[in-house]
Amino acid sequence: MSKRRNHDAGFKARVALEAVKGERTVSELAAEYGVHPTMIHQWKKALLEGASDIFERGGKKKAEVDEEAVRSLHAKIGELAVANDFLFTKAQALDRQVRRGMIERSHPSLSIGAQCRLLSISRSSFYYAPQGEAEVNLALMRLIDRQFLETPFYGVRQMTWHLQNEGYPVNQKRIRRLMRLMRLMPIYQKPNTSKRAKGHKTYPYLLSGLRVDRPNQAWCADITYLPMRRGFLYLVAIVDWFTRKALAWRISNTLEADFCVEALNEAVHRFGPPEIMNTDQGSQFTSFAWTDRLKRIGTRISMDGKGRCLDNIFIERLWRSLKYECVYLHAWETGSQAKAGVARWITFYNHQRPHAAHGGQPPAMVYFNQIKTD
């Protein structure tokens, strides 16, 4: 029986820092540290969101004790006791992985068993340490990714049939989970509900019938899956709709909105704000961090219709070219190798690769020539 590990603050910080570095995939980190991938996502997010507090506290003197505030606090102890019962009841309505992350191994007054009972989690499930994605699942994800580029209308059922016809003993449950993990949203004849966050506002599609005839009139952004030798990463790119130039990109091992906003900030800093930004309805692009940034620079927000990835067709074509001309030709081991490989290809794509939409001229040449004449 393996020794139980105490996930103290130092351990969480160490794992979160490894995730922030982006050198290894979440699957690799989960296998090495014996924690669930969901925990790594949460710890990385907490580290990024709390980093600014370190500098804010650094220059402040220790606050003096406010006796009146202390007396007021003691007066509310009874209210808090009632509130605790209410909060525990609410906590039980949360997702199990979220409740699992709420348990503190070093809690001063509550044992792990007591916390598990309060949160309706079995002790065995709390101590279970998954080993990340199995090699067979990673192989299936690579096959799904290749086939999806050829047939973006394949949903879970058709993709399952395809793999079964190729001799792979898979069922719809597994393929559905893997396609969600890869962020693949097929085209359907009827509207399909894409993976959005509850409560996030969506916006109408603004490019239908619009003549886009100059740089920075409209940009588009999207996220794709990058297969690695031992796991996978995610790549976001921002593309100018008219010239097809890739303006900025970022790679991450998790799907928070932060790396998307970083790419947007770089593109705006280098090329100025666009008039319109078009994306799908994914949770990263409906998040407050993304939409608020666009509103503050005066950019109109446009989003694809449900189940209509062809509304963002130009960046879908970029993914196809990138994967067949670069990603599938390599088996990257680390995040650094992936970043270097993608950087080389995007530089080649922007400045050397002939583009059919511009009579063989590279996108960067068209972009800068248009900027000079405007």
Rank of each mutant, 00 (worst) to 15 (best):
M185T: 13
C260F: 03
V212K: 07
R270I: 00
P215H: 03
T279W: 02
F271K: 08
Q217N: 02
E275I: 01
K198Y: 08
P274V: 03
A248E: 02
I175Y: 02
L247S: 01
P204C: 07
T279Y: 05
K201W: 00
Q217I: 02
K195T: 12
W161H: 14
Q158C: 07
R270Q: 09
Y234F: 14
K195P: 00
L207G: 08
V261W: 05
I223D: 00
L206Y: 04
T254C: 04
D240G: 06
V170W: 09
M277Y: 02
N253H: 01
Y205L: 07
L226I: 14
L235E: 12
M182H: 06
G231E: 10
S194E: 15
R211D: 10
R176Y: 12
Y203V: 10
P227C: 06
R229Y: 09
Q164W: 08
S194R: 13
R174P: 00
L206S: 06
N192R: 13
P191E: 14
L233E: 04
A263E: 06
I238G: 04
A218E: 00
R229I: 09
K195H: 12
D258F: 06
A237G: 11
M182I: 04
V268S: 05
S194D: 15
D240Q: 06
R211M: 06
F242L: 08
R229S: 11
R177T: 08
L226M: 09
Y203W: 14
P169Y: 14
H162K: 13
P204L: 01
M228D: 03
K173G: 11
L181N: 12
I276E: 05
I223G: 03
G209Q: 15
K245M: 15
N216K: 10
S194C: 10
G167Q: 12
T224D: 04
R229L: 13
P204T: 05
L235Q: 10
N192G: 07
K198M: 00
L181K: 13
C260M: 08
A221V: 11
H200S: 08
K198G: 01
C260P: 06
M182C: 07
L163N: 10
A246M: 13
Q217F: 11
A221G: 15
L255N: 12
L226Q: 02
K245E: 13
A197M: 05
